[in-house]
Design a protein around this nucleic acid. Structure first.
Lengths: 338, 338
DNA sequence: CCTTCGTTGTGAAACGATTCACCGTATGAC
DNA sequence: GTCATACGGTGAATCGTTTCACAACGAAGG
């Protein structure tokens, strides 16, 4: 049980005042080289480790950023986290990943914990557009950046233009000659889903087709199982009635769809072309590499962190809404063989 | 900029002493119902939020567990993290996920940060068997539990019996009648890889076959790309010379292998049966659902967290090495169609 | 020789919660 | 009426840093 070493002990041992030890730690240039090295040696031999709690109590602010995501098991979010970490680390901050698991209560719990810790700031992919707990965090002076969910002017936010993404996906399918196209996704309450659908419809309209000609299958979630279920529904249709292409609202749906087609002996893309959304790594690694709409996942995390740091540091901070443009990635699942 | 509310303010406003406020917060049963509710109302209206740094400074211990993993993007680790979170939450602790990214320096950095924070404890999947930074954390009184890497008696640890896992996988392939079997994995320095290979050889021996009849392809890493490369190597062989089954050291390799087979128009499992390891969710969701050896991912996290809490709480704690048994999961990639 | 700096170093005063020895008051037993 | 006990409540001391006004001392300028 050592670890009872404080600056006072170091000071005594080195024959200096505790203020000097603190200076060695935080503003080494104000200390003469001789004493500096002496103090550092003592720190070394005594095995002194700074107590972060005391530091934070005195200085009033913490050096941790909270990042609350909907699902820690979704590669999209972990990639985003890596981006955030990258920027934070360069700034001497650290990121703690909090998993809300798409549960409102857990989300609120994490927010409250971060408030108690006087976090440097919070990055959050919220469940709902307006979350009281988030407003509270704001009000108590902790900057908040909304991620992947652009909103009003009340916060900084970063997001990707989902409407354009939907257009890209469906325009691509139309260009390949597909006409019977189906959108697969849900629940519609999730803004991203409805925006992507809106984009898909816009692409139909732009091609001079009736917007309503786009079929839609609503799913309960955005996971692999839901994709399989939707796939089964499509596979049951007669070949002449079946869509020739589907646009899935995310890659997990797309992968489920692909799996079901393989199971039913339908060929992708010959019998059914599939395009997903997000471009997670597993999309490329699928048995039939999945076309997708790429979101700059890591960049999203980087940008959000930068906004957060700016909000904290620059006094005349203006809230900004950063919107990225998505990018079409064509692979075998829509391109034909090889 | 509010948030300057401390217990003192609450006490003044409620007309009680600050000790009483603290009691309301921490030992409500010692306060009469009347004053308790009054204080709670004041807390509410003033928007008081406890300062965790001060609490920790005084009480000397933090309520956060650090979990350092090799790769935050690997579903295996995020599932483990979920298990750890589950136990921690029930105990009023929280888990912060730290990503070492298979980088020694980052690992050390995270350990040092956790030390400064006087973390409740540390769960770590270390890079190397002996890591000085881990010993330092230990020595400063912070309990450490090694995860997924059983070691000597110096620490608590949880792991899975990889040798048995290897036996299970290869016995399964042998039982299906396969005789030309290949092990795919690497680098060999990773204990898990060599143990799984040893298990595979043991299965050969047990079947009365020459241990060395097992072919081996060494890969540079345990990711999808490496699996594809190994798959390409196999696909180049003549059908008569090619193994009829492969055992991949993890699922990412297996998925890469599967993808390459599909690309080369080889059927799984008819032309090549594939079994992976870990049983991540994407294994089941693959185009040909992947047989695998299941590790109790969440249970690993749960057990590790329990050991940590025990080490911290019970005075006569004995280090324990918990070893789980793996489980064979048969799916289409080895079972034949449907 | 006296001032004025500049450089180093000092140590007391915060920061905000928890703890603990202690103090009234009421209740009830004797 | 006295004493023991229990219950509610008090507030000073404490945790380990950082900060800041100030001191000590030598050098430079007048």
């Amino acid at each position: 049980m050592p670890d009872k070493i404080s600056v006072v002990d170091v000071a005594r041992e080195a024959g200096v005042s505790l203020g000097t030890v603190s200076n060695v730690l935080n503003r080494p240039e104000r200390v003469s080289a001789a004493t500096r090295t002496r103090v550092q040696e003592v720190i070394e031999t005594l095995g002194y480790v700074r107590n972060e709690a005391a530091r934070q109590l005195r200085s009033g602010s913490s050096r941790t950023i909270g990042l609350i995501v909907l699902d820690i098991a979704n590669p999209f979010f972990t990639d985003m986290a890596k981006g955030a970490e990258e920027i934070a680390e360069a700034e001497g901050l650290s990121v703690v990943l909090c998993n809300s698991g798409e549960d409102r209560t857990r989300e609120a719990h994490h927010l409250s914990l971060l408030r108690e810790q006087r976090a440097f700031g919070v990055l959050v992919t919220p469940m709902a557009a307006r979350t009281p707990a988030i407003e509270e965090v704001r009000r108590s002076g902790t900057p908040v950046v909304l991620v992947d969910r652009g909103s009003g002017r009340a916060h900084c936010s970063v997001s990707v233009n989902d409407r354009v993404g939907g257009e890209l996906a469906v325009s691509h399918l139309l260009a390949l000659g597909h006409e019977r196209i189906c959108f697969v996704g849900g629940p519609r309450a999730i803004r991203q889903v409805s925006e992507r659908l809106a984009g898909a419809r816009a692409a139909f309209a732009a091609a001079g087709l009736n917007r309503d000609a786009l079929q839609v299958i609503s799913t309960a979630g955005l996971n692999v199982a839901a994709g399989r279920a939707a796939g089964s529904e499509l596979a049951d249709l007669k070949a002449g009635k079946r869509p020739t292409a589907v646009f899935c609202a995310n890659d997990l749906l797309g992968l489920g769809m692909l799996q079901e087609m393989t199971r039913r002996r339908l060929r992708v893309p010959d019998d059914l072309a599939i395009i997903g959304y997000d471009d997670i790594d597993f999309a490329e690694a699928a048995a039939v590499p999945l076309s997708s709409v790429r979101q700059p996942r890591a960049e999203l995390g980087r940008a959000a962190t930068k906004l957060l740091i700016d909000e904290r540091n620059s006094p005349d901070h203006q809230h900004r809404q950063v919107v990225f443009e998505p990018e079409l990635v064509v692979r075998a699942s829509t391109a034909g063989f090889d």
